[in-house]
Amino acid sequence: MQKYIIELSQKKVQIVFLFLISFAMIFSTHTSSAQQKDMMIRIAEIEIFPESLEEYKAILKEESGASLKLEAGVVSIFPMFQKENPTLIKILEIYANREAYEAHLKTPHFLHYKTSTLKMVKSLKLIEMNALDLEALPAIFLKMK
């Protein structure tokens, strides 16, 4: 039974990942080079109190799904956790531009996430990133087929 649950969870992760890949491919092929350079990329590093982990993951999953579905400017909100320490969460965030990020912060689903999880978060670090090779983005996702 446990093996079935693990396999089912892995399939869900694969489906979400394929959705992200498809969206990124569509976005990158319909976006000019100048627009790609305006992209805002960051990695959020979050440590969750162990007793809040399951509730936090459920709220984060709901928020990331809503962001991808409802916000055209959200290219990626891809949460993941460390295998050895599941209370250490990292989120790859990619926004079309700074304006898309600012709009994201005002959405009902983000505000719900932020207010609901505030006491669950032990630490939060937001790391601003720059892509080394934006032109490689479509090729990366094509390899997943």
Rank of each mutant, 00 (worst) to 15 (best):
Q14M: 11
Q14N: 13
I15N: 14
I15Y: 13
F17S: 15
F19E: 15
F19P: 00
L20P: 00
L20A: 07
S22D: 15
M25L: 15
S28Y: 06
S33R: 11
A34C: 03
Q36N: 12
Q36F: 05
Q36S: 05
K37Q: 15
D38A: 12
M40D: 01
I41Y: 01
R42E: 12
I43N: 11
A44R: 06
E45T: 09
I46V: 11
E47D: 12
I48L: 08
I48E: 05
I48H: 07
S52W: 09
L53C: 03
E54F: 11
E54A: 13
E55M: 11
E55F: 08
Y56T: 04
K57D: 10
K57S: 09
I59R: 03
I59K: 10
L60N: 04
G65F: 01
L70C: 08
L70G: 02
L70S: 04
L70R: 13
V74L: 02
S76C: 13
I77W: 08
I77N: 04
F81K: 09
Q82Y: 07
E84G: 11
E84Q: 12
N85D: 14
N85F: 02
P86T: 02
T87Q: 10
L88T: 05
L88F: 13
K90H: 09
I91N: 00
E93H: 02
Y95K: 01
N97C: 03
N97W: 06
E99Y: 09
A100D: 05
Y101P: 04
Y101V: 02
H104I: 06
K106E: 15
T107K: 00
P108N: 03
L111E: 11
Y113G: 04
Y113V: 07
